[in-house]
Amino acid sequence: MMTMATAFFSPNRCAFGLLLNVLALVLASLVFAAASLAPPASAASFDCRKASSADEHAICSNDDLSGLDDAMAAGFREARRQAPAVVKPLSRSLLAERRACGADIDCLKLTMTKAVGAYKSIILGEPVDGDRKDKVYYGTRAGMQVSVVSRSGIDTPRAVIQIEHRREDAVAFCRDYVLKVTDQCIQDELAVDLQNKFTGDCKTGRFTTITGQTYVFFGRNTATDAGIGNDFVVIDPDTNEPLDGSMASGYPVAIDQFKELCPTRVR
């Protein structure tokens, strides 16, 4: 009669145990393979399995960014429902800013938080571009803007506006004028030679622009034969000739900068 010990250590029993071990290894391999094929972290605004750009890969691999993307997507859907005409161009602009960040986590957090705030403003009926007053144009092309850092002596003989040409300003130029935001475009725009301030003497009307040009504000245009159609007379002191009011003459940008320095003179 076969004892229990004999039965346990019989060849058939050992073979069965070996089979169980093999099956366990196969099962473990299948589980590992399935895990390796599982989709990456999800993002609400796009499919992480199809992520192609640096910003998309960064979002899919970062929990904080993924959460911001969820909030941004939810805000976009509701804002689009309420104001589709406003949201369509805004979303393109915000996406371009996000793309320009590449894989920079801090930059992505900043731009995505801005996007969430913008959609929230639309939903609540608040102004979306409330900080626009802190931008000043330095040229006539779309997006040629700088950021205002500080203002002092406005409407006095020592009016000064300190400025910075920031990355967000370069992105605006590449987006609105070049119509394509790339690292090279941003670098080229940031390399433009600009002053870090523009100044004016609101008593004499003499002022220097962001690009370093000096003009003199002569007041409202009252002459009918002056040959210029603009409301105010701005003189180029090098030629003693008035700017003719055209975009090419630089008048629109010059008068706008003078308005920032000496608003009470331009009424």
Results as ranks from 00 to 15, higher is better:
Thr3Ile: 05
Thr3Gln: 10
Met4Trp: 15
Ala5Pro: 06
Ala5Val: 14
Ala7Phe: 13
Ser10Trp: 03
Ser10Asp: 05
Cys14Tyr: 11
Ala15His: 09
Ala15Glu: 08
Phe16Ala: 15
Leu19Tyr: 11
Leu19Asp: 10
Leu20Glu: 09
Val22Trp: 08
Val22Tyr: 05
Leu25Phe: 13
Leu27Ile: 15
Leu30Gln: 11
Leu30Gly: 07
Ala33Ser: 15
Leu37Cys: 12
Ser42Ala: 15
Asp47Arg: 08
Asp47Ser: 07
Arg49Met: 15
Ser52Ile: 13
Ala54Pro: 02
Asp55Arg: 12
Ser61Ile: 05
Asp64Asn: 11
Asp64Lys: 11
Asp70Glu: 15
Ala74Gly: 07
Phe76Trp: 09
Glu78Ile: 10
Ala83Glu: 14
Ala83Thr: 03
Pro84Asp: 00
Val86Ile: 13
Val87Asn: 01
Leu90Ser: 02
Arg92Gln: 14
Leu94Ser: 00
Leu95Tyr: 09
Gly102Asn: 03
Asp104Gln: 06
Asp104Ala: 03
Thr111Pro: 04
Val116Ile: 08
Gly117Ala: 09
Lys120Glu: 13
Ser121Pro: 04
Leu124Gln: 14
Pro127Met: 00
Asp129Ala: 15
Lys133Ser: 14
Val136Glu: 02
Thr140Leu: 13
Ala142Gln: 11
Met144Leu: 10
Val146Tyr: 05
Ser147Thr: 15
Arg151Glu: 10
Gly153Glu: 01
Ile154Lys: 03
Asp155His: 04
Thr156Met: 05
Arg158Val: 10
Val160Gln: 08
Ile161Gln: 02
Ile163Cys: 03
His165Ala: 04
Arg167Ala: 01
Asp169Val: 01
Tyr177Arg: 14
Val178Gln: 08
Lys180His: 12
Asp183Phe: 11
Asp188Leu: 06
Glu189Ser: 11
Asp193Asn: 12
Asp193Arg: 10
Phe198Thr: 00
Thr199Cys: 07
Gly200Arg: 05
Gly200Thr: 05
Asp201Val: 06
Thr208Asn: 03
Thr209Lys: 05
Thr211Asp: 13
Thr211Pro: 07
Val216Met: 04
Phe217Ala: 00
Arg220Met: 07
Asn221Pro: 01
Asn221Met: 02
Ala223Cys: 08
Thr224Leu: 13
Ile228Gln: 01
Asn230Trp: 01
Asp231Trp: 06
Asp231Val: 08
Phe232Val: 03
Ile235Val: 12
Met247Val: 14
Met247Lys: 11
Gly250Asn: 00
Tyr251Val: 02
Val253Phe: 00
Gln257Ile: 03
Gln257Ser: 00
Glu260His: 10
Cys262Asp: 01
Arg265Thr: 04
Arg265Phe: 05
